[in-house]
């Protein structure tokens, strides 16, 4: 069981990292706003509270690495590719969309980034891609999953094969303590660490909202995945600061307060108020302009 995140003092954050975390934050907030205004079709799953994880991870990835993402994947994408216009165009079905508006929020394939909407489905695929990387020696596969994903059998089939065959696969688990509306305590027996141990798969857990700490803890693990050609599971304790999708949060006021307190944003705003305020203004304005720009575009075409 992962306890509440307790952070005394954050390490100084680079402008690039903080900007990107705030850019993702404002991208997600803009989506929720557009939904409220009835200007977005379908659904979306924002990563509010988890933005620092892909920002920490992406700096350790190389251009030839493959990234596999899930339903809550906007941050994974934006941390790797600074292309919010193209992602927003995808979500809103506008010209310049990553996948012509066909995939939408959950099904993106761009360069070496691929997301799918079925829980756990990407892991065996990532093993296949990692096996090719093992052969060619040109990279690794990195797959983001959540704590809820561990209910899927495909996770275990994939971990077993990855360990047996030495697939360079990094699994990043964003453990946000809740699977849609079900607390993880009600859906996951034992622990992720214990499950990894059963397969002999390297596992490391970090409980920090400090992007530098998360990255520093992950770096040696990524190196082992690359050098030793083996899988590893990196579990990051996070809080889902927003709803599962939109307006569907049934958590109590106390639970929401705990999630808000565990949000990296609150910690950074407390420790670096001036830096956050300054960059936040820039990112808010940037995303507002992106929204205006994209929504003025013609509808996407698909042939």
């Amino acid at each position: 069981m992962i306890g509440a995140v307790r952070e005394r003092t954050l390490t100084p954050v680079s402008e690039a990292d903080l900007s990107r975390m705030l850019r993702i934050r404002h991208f997600e907030k803009a989506l929720l706003r557009l939904f409220e205004q009835g200007r977005l079709n379908g659904t979306t799953h924002t990563c509010l509270g988890q933005e620092h994880v892909p920002v920490a991870v992406s700096a350790l990835l190389r251009p030839k690495d493959h990234v596999f993402s899930n339903h809550r994947g906007h941050g994974h994408f934006l941390a790797r590719y600074d292309e919010p216009h193209a992602l927003l165009a995808e979500i809103t079905g506008r010209e310049g969309a990553l996948c012509n508006g066909v995939g939408g929020s959950q099904h993106i394939y761009h360069e070496r980034f691929l997301s799918t909407g079925v829980q756990g489905e990407s892991l065996p695929v990532a093993v296949g891609v990692a096996l090719r990387h093992r052969r060619t020696g040109d990279g690794i596969a990195c797959a983001y999953i959540g704590d809820g994903t561990w209910g899927e059998g495909s996770v275990y089939e994939a971990l077993n094969m990855a360990q047996l065959w030495g697939a360079p696969l990094l699994v990043v688990v964003e453990h946000n303590r809740i699977a849609q509306s079900t607390p993880t305590t009600a859906q996951l027996a034992g622990s992720i660490a214990g499950r990894c141990a059963g397969f002999g798969v390297l596992h490391h857990r970090v409980e920090s909202v400090d992007v530098n700490v998360v990255r520093a803890e992950l770096a040696p693990l990524v190196e082992r995945v690359r050098a030793d050609k083996r899988p590893a599971v990196f579990e990051v304790s996070v809080h889902r600061a927003g709803p599962h999708s939109k307006g569907d949060d049934t958590r109590t006021a106390a639970e929401l307060a705990e999630a808000a307190a565990g949000d990296w944003y609150a910690h950074y705003a407390r420790d670096f108020p001036a830096q956050v305020a300054a960059l936040e203004e820039i990112e808010r304005a940037f995303i507002d302009a992106a929204v205006e720009n994209v929504l003025a575009r013609p509808l996407s075409e698909w042939s």
């Binding site: 489905e121 065996p124 695929v125 093993v127 296949g128 891609v129 990692a130 089939e157 077993n160 094969m161």
Partner: peptide, 25 residues
């Protein structure tokens, strides 16, 4: 040629991954 664990879903996924990455499976 790889003999696999008893994981039909898993091995079809691995095959799809190989196929996406440039191999044929």
């Amino acid at each position: 040629v790889m003999s696999t664990p008893l994981s039909e879903g898993g091995i079809v996924g691995v095959g799809a991954g190989l196929a996406l990455a440039g191999d044929r499976a």
